[in-house]
Nucleic acid binder design. Structure first.
Lengths: 302, 302
DNA sequence: GAGGCTGCATCAGCAGTACTGATGCAGCCT
DNA sequence: AGGCTGCATCAGTACTGCTGATGCAGCCTC
């Protein structure tokens, strides 16, 4: 299970073709074919069906392992590479679209702060590789559960803010008059899947314990106003943190009565950052106080 | 950063010697030397000091990445290998020493159940590799925080039981008369570090936010009665879940008033297990109900 | 249904890798 | 100072992993 072989395997599955994967990886088609053959003989089972090229059951299972493994490997490389470079000056931050209210409540310390808005995974990758000093990520979870963040290396997570979730409905929706709704009652509704902006639908499925929440529309942007406009235009429902939802116009915002899930913002950073970043970490962390801090599994004291 | 190179690097750091690592790995000393040289030139920094052989700062950093990476790689291999084999019959379980009360409250389902008592890390490794169908692990954490478990692959974690922690003191200890103590007041006391039996001291340090809790005695066994005898004999203090502590004789058990940390048992298993294991998962999980379930970061729906 | 075409499998050949075993050399102990 | 332990280095070799060419199976076209 050489990482090179895994990387080719992932590329082949992603592209659905040996030859296309070969050209994106800079190999010949022959090499890719040999890589896959090597993996299959190593693991003792076919991983891909050919014509069409698609993962078998074993291949799908391997994919679940391969992608996080390769991510971790890259994160480790980047982390080590950063050790050799001189630390740069300004503070640099990343945040997911719905997490910035927690960040921008107070001025950013240091000179020339830089802020990037990224998706959850990209934000995590950026903080792991050291491209940014810290990141704020948001997500939905049960009140006492952590956000399930990909484990890319030794990170520290601090709970920053938490608020309730609300369903955003078009004003004329049948349920718009209700003071609150149960999420399960909406599982068969038309939903907008906005994985980078709001709460990803798979997360709702886990929380509500159903197979519903099928996406009718997919929105790939990171702009909440556009998402609100989509709801207003009747393209589907979505779920947003309460305060954000209430800033949208022309839509109805309804509380979720069950299950009890909340929207939470967590700060993620590597070891103790230096300088201005450290100041910010301490200020944000102070809002929580007490034992809200969780070091990541990888390096946590047991 | 070939895994082979990482593996030899880890071996060299563990053994503190190139030649010893070589023989345990089945290489020549020459090969090990070349492996380390290759890693160092790849990462552009020395990783080890020679004479004595010890990791440099960069090497220590690499170790933090290497070991979890290799663990995950092995876990992935084992998971895939298991797919090829016919599922075996009996149910097989692992639990950490302090987690069995939650497990043995009711009879185990299936014929020929097998139970193994392991350390936290070994139990996780066993469930990831499929050697056991599910594992119960225990640990200390803030009430709303999860146990920080190493991320070895796609696992599901369910909170099973939670109770308060108690300090176990010799009967004649000055603080033995108090109804409760603050953990911070005991940070300078003599402690017994019993990482496999009780609550590891580093965990207490994180919870209490101090640098104290230095071990005077280390106990490597998994037997709680022996740990109790150590306390009784005055070798130091320890922390145990309340109900377990109260079963010890000749010691004083005192509640912890601050910080608020609890002892929690979590059930960990891979995908949905089949047969008797499934029955057990559902029964244990039912005790919790609601959204106590957390799929692991690696494969969690976002 | 025959032919062409697309795309993965296979093969031969070559270049570079990854070992081994021998030797060199630096630090430490006596 | 001399010996010894243990990592570095070097030469040699087996083998791995790539390329380019060819083979062959399935699908589309007509």
């Amino acid at each position: 299970m050489d990482p090179h072989l895994l990387r080719t395997f992932v590329a082949v599955v992603d592209q659905g073709s040996f030859s296309v994967a070969a050209s994106t990886l800079g190999y010949t088609q022959s090499a890719v074919s040999q890589h896959i053959a090597a993996l299959e003989s190593d693991l003792g089972a076919p991983l891909l069906t050919r014509r069409p090229v698609a993962p078998t059951a074993a291949g799908a299972r391997l994919m679940e392992h391969a992608r996080p493994l390769l991510l971790r490997l890259d994160a480790a490389r980047a982390d080590l590479a950063r050790l050799n470079q001189a630390p740069q000056q300004g503070i640099s931050l990343a945040c997911t679209p719905l997490s910035h209210p927690a960040l921008l409540a107070a001025p950013l310390p240091g000179d020339r702060p830089s802020l990037r808005v990224l998706g959850r995974d990209e934000a995590l990758r950026a903080v792991t590789s050291g491209e940014v000093d810290l990141a704020l990520v948001d997500g939905a979870a049960a009140p006492s559960d952590p956000l399930a963040l990909a484990d890319l290396g030794p990170l520290t997570t601090v709970r920053v803010a938490e608020e309730s979730l609300a369903v955003v409905l078009p004003a004329q929706h049948p349920l718009a008059g209700r003071p609150s709704v149960r999420l399960a009652d909406l599982s068969e509704a038309h939903w907008i899947d906005a994985p980078d902006t709001g709460v990803p639908l798979p997360r709702l499925r886990v929380a509500a314990g159903t197979d519903g929440f099928r996406a009718r529309t997919t929105y790939e942007g990171t702009d909440v106003l556009t998402l609100g406009a989509l709801v207003r235009a009747g393209h589907g429902l979505t779920v947003l943190p309460d305060s954000t939802a209430r800033r949208l116009h022309g839509v109805t915002v309804t509380a979720v009565s069950a299950p009890h899930i909340v929207h939470r913002v967590e700060m993620v950073h590597g070891r103790l950052p230096r300088g201005a970043a450290r100041e910010l970490v301490e200020r944000i962390g102070a809002g929580e106080g007490g034992p809200g801090q969780v070091t990541s599994p990888a390096s946590a004291p047991r």
